[in-house]
Design a protein around this nucleic acid. Structure first.
Lengths: 207, 207, 207, 207
DNA sequence: AATGAATGAGAGTTCATTCAT
DNA sequence: TATGAATGAACTCTCATTCAT
């Protein structure tokens, strides 16, 4: 009908895209606030203003929308990390760039993250439960394993190393996000120093 | 009721203590196996052989029994950590002893931990979900903050430092528990090296 | 506590039995009125006045309560039929007694049957959907197969024969139950004549 | 809209007819495979390739399309039966021809019938659930009632007689369709013998 | 204090039907 | 008229919690 059909995506198409995004956004918020287990599909759709059944026009289950979010996170952070690999960076430089990128990434993501925890829930250090976080783990581990394999880094157990680096980045990142103002540079600097040099590499107390 | 109540703890008392402990033990197992969210009060009481209602004579909710477990963990690990403080240890020695104690502790606790994860659940790095773990975090943080305050340690942000150290210990500990055989000494050695010296403090790749 | 505990089943026990029976009765009515597919667990429990969850204290699913009803029917009609077998009755006598027993049985059961059909549903001849009916089919078939095997009856295909006999008994029984007054003797007489002698065995129209 | 609407049924008309038939065909298949209750409107439209909403341009509900199918069946089988009436056939001949026609009819219809039943469902004798079957019942009953009225048949209750004859034809027909190969002639022969002569009219076991 | 059946809110999910396009 | 996404009531079933015994 329309003479510009090739350009006109149509209102229906627009709402579809918008709804899909609305569900994704709501899911990100809800998972962040409540955690995967506690979050319900109803929590998600309630936040979109859509009807209960509409959720299932887009995602087949709670698990599927979670997976979609993880994909989304991986899609956006993964390339950043991949871009750092194999460019002849020294190991230190690679860690600096990666951590910097990570902290910038989570700061940017932060508006979608958990700030508030529900009152009844015991306060656990259940960090990393956001789907984006889950997705980046594999990337970081791979990058570190590669560095080890290429002998550009230390020769310790790559799985332990990846676990330790990710753990530092994640938990320091979490603390960073809880503070006001959010000091990305300071947190990244600390995390880099800690990852590369440990406690002994941190600035000493003056004699 | 009892005519010798003034001396006799009585069968009732014994039962009360035994039941309370039975619930606590069952809860530890169940939280370890299923995680806090997935675990149900029914799972816990089923394992005790007690009746459903009896649970509520001892704990008002799932949350409360979780808190009780956390207290229990703190009660047992806390003194170990406290025993290390203020004994004139150098900062390095303190970290070594604390990490060693921690890895021994979790290895000992391990039989109560998660081996199996529910099948449908996305595999996340939801470390530290056992209540004992939750409890030791505060202790570790306090010890580190104290070391900073006493100027025996580095002068960085104590909250970040505690977060980083705990994160390393926890995540490396998790990996350790997933391996067979469980190599407490090796994992502790890695964690200590990483905490104190970072990646650069780890053994280098041979030239 | 009670001095007559050996006699006293206790109020709890009474309500349990009463509730189980209430659910069974409600299920019989609901299956009769709506059919197995249309009937919902909610329809059943709504009729008992119990809470939704209570149903699941007694039966694990709609299917299980259906099976329990079928067992109930089989338990009551099965012995009647079995009592007729192997007693040296002639084949005719066996059929007469069996059909007589069947019509008496369904007339007795009738107060639990469908009288009303929901308005929206297309009126189909979906007879035999009550669980008791489902249960007796197997019995009747076995009895007929046995008669064939023992050469006391005709030598046609036993499965077809059973199907035909059951079909007649069931459908004529259904019509009988729809009439007022319910004429068990007349219907049984017709069914017996039809089963044994077919249309040609029925009373002829006077010349 | 069309300038030649006065002569041309038009694409729209053709589409309308074709769609209506497509829905009818799909519904026949689906009802046959799943049964009336289990079948959903979505099952039907999915099979047509049409959009969900289009269904409601042709039929107001699942019930209505079912009724339309019944009409369709009656429209095709009814004339066959009517053609047999009032042609001076003897009663036996009439039964033979009618049953023969019926068995040929259902064998022909068979590709649209139930072969598969959903797994969880209790196995019931829910014969006659196809709409065509529902429709022919009335015809058969009328034919038999007429035979009685004309005194060409037995003088028993016509409603009971019709019920019995239909029941035999239907259930034996169902069994026939479950066997491989489908033996229309054998089943029809059995049904005719059973309807006319009952069990005693069937071939005797050899002495 | 122990029991365990009853409760009912709420979980995920389905589906007949509506209605803007 | 065809479309197909949106709707929301209703479904089966779970489970923390209560309370009569």
């Amino acid at each position: 009908m329309s003479q510009v059909a090739y350009l006109n995506v149509g209102k229906r198409e627009q709402t579809k895209v918008a709804n899909r995004q609305a569900i994704l956004d709501a899911a990100r918020e809800v998972f962040g606030e409540l955690g995967y287990e506690t979050a319900t599909v109803r929590d998600i759709i309630r936040r979109t203003g859509l009807a209960a059944g509409t959720f299932y026009n887009y995602y087949r289950s709670k698990e599927e929308v979670f997976a979609a979010l993880a994909d989304d996170g991986a899609r956006r952070f993964g390339p950043i990390l991949k871009g750092l690999r194999g460019h002849g960076h020294s190991f230190e430089t690679f860690v600096e760039l990666a951590i910097g990128a990570y902290f910038a990434f989570i700061a940017d993501e932060h508006r979608n993250w958990a700030a508030r925890r529900p009152p009844g829930e015991p306060h656990l250090h259940v960090q990393g439960e956001t789907p984006e976080m889950a997705a980046v783990f594999a990337e970081v581990r791979d990058a570190l394993a590669e560095a080890v394999a290429e002998r550009t880094g230390p020769m310790a157990d790559p799985d332990y190393m990846a676990a330790a680096c990710i753990a530092i980045a994640r938990d320091v990142g979490d603390r960073m996000l809880e503070r006001r103002p959010i000091d990305t540079a300071g947190a990244a600097e600390f995390a880099i120093a800690m990852i590369l040099g440990g406690l002994k590499g941190l600035p000493k107390a003056p004699a």
